[in-house]
Write a protein that binds this DNA or RNA. Structure first.
Lengths: 183, 183
DNA sequence: AAGATATGTCAACATGACTGACGTAAATTT
DNA sequence: AAATTTACGTCAGTCATGTTGACATATCTT
């Protein structure tokens, strides 16, 4: 049906690049790292995804739980910065987590408009379980790598992150802010 | 309104873990790598996301284009394995890319039921542009890392990937298959 | 000829994003 | 004190991308 009427080669139509197209810079492109990142991240989040199904939650719930647990007293606005989603989108997920008792809100002391977020023990248990699964994978992957190698991995991942306009969590990770994560 | 009636502490309610909950294994959890992966991947795909908007495409289109370009002659079934989505979901995206001339199909030589997928020059240009953006970020991140460090990063990412039931693309990446990527 | 396989498609639905508009309480500015 | 801004919540509608289930068609295998 929709058979090819494009092929310039025979069995294996090889394209030779169109005019006006920017040079592919073939030799320089890091296809290797690009694809490794895709597959590594896919399987990394897959660990948690599978477990979350049992709770009727999705990735969105995990992300919220994770950062609320790690940075207790996070404001709603901070969370929006970190997750880079709209408040309407966060609202739905957050409401479920509040209703089901995974997170609690506490009115801010200085500014009573703020709703500071904290994980309940129930929430902590879930986050720890998911982090455990992901840690298992990471530990396995780091097993045969020496300390210099681990340092290089950490440095690489940090350097992959945008440093302009960092949110509170990133400030904590890069040690430029006042907020400190748990543990 | 929904003020806290849970807090056991004062200003900063610190939870001490519920009974019956598995031990948090706090000291061992790799919160650092977990969060670095989250932010690194977020910004990594963000590069492409931004550019894709100008084409009216999303991440799904990028993933399809990428693997079709890199592994020319990929079958539809292979693509489903790699992306781990259903054929209905792939169908919508693939149809758009075919209609708009980013990809072409060619009937298989041995098996005429198969539709082998190839990127057109238009498709190649898009993939190269996106890979260029991501390569820029990777190159920047690798700049101050020595060859041993780069090897450790590559080893780490490979070890993060599930090796049971590898698809054709993973076989190529791990050098256990016959198919070879471009470039 | 019968059955299995590769692909495509229709229909319905879920999740998690989005925009835009509006409301309320509390803080800040004038 | 009044006006404005801020932090948050919510209603309503839309879009992108995933899902399941059913079914059709062409082609290969037995």
């Amino acid at each position: 049906m929709t058979d090819v009427n494009f092929s310039r080669g025979a069995a294996n139509p090889d394209s030779q690049g169109a005019e006006g197209v920017p040079a592919p810079r073939s030799g320089e492109l890091r296809w290797d790292i690009i694809e490794l990142l895709f597959f590594a991240y896919r399987d990394f989040v897959g660990d948690a995804d599978h477990e979350l199904e049992a709770f009727g939650f999705g990735r969105a719930h995990h992300r919220v739980m994770h950062f609320v647990y790690r940075y207790p007293g996070l404001k709603v606005a901070d969370l929006l910065d970190v997750l880079r989603i709209t408040k309407q989108s966060l609202g739905r997920v957050l409401k479920q987590l509040l209703d089901e008792g995974y997170i609690v809100q506490k009115t801010g002391n200085n500014d009573r408009r703020q709703r500071l977020l904290y994980a309940t023990p129930k929430g902590e248990a879930l986050v720890a379980k998911l982090a455990g699964l992901q840690t298992d994978r990471i530990t396995r992957a780091l097993r045969d790598i020496n300390p210099e190698g681990v340092a290089a991995i950490s440095q690489f991942l940090r350097a992959m992150i945008d440093r302009d306009d960092p949110d509170k969590v990133l400030e904590a990770i890069f040690g430029t802010g006042s907020k400190k994560p748990r543990e």
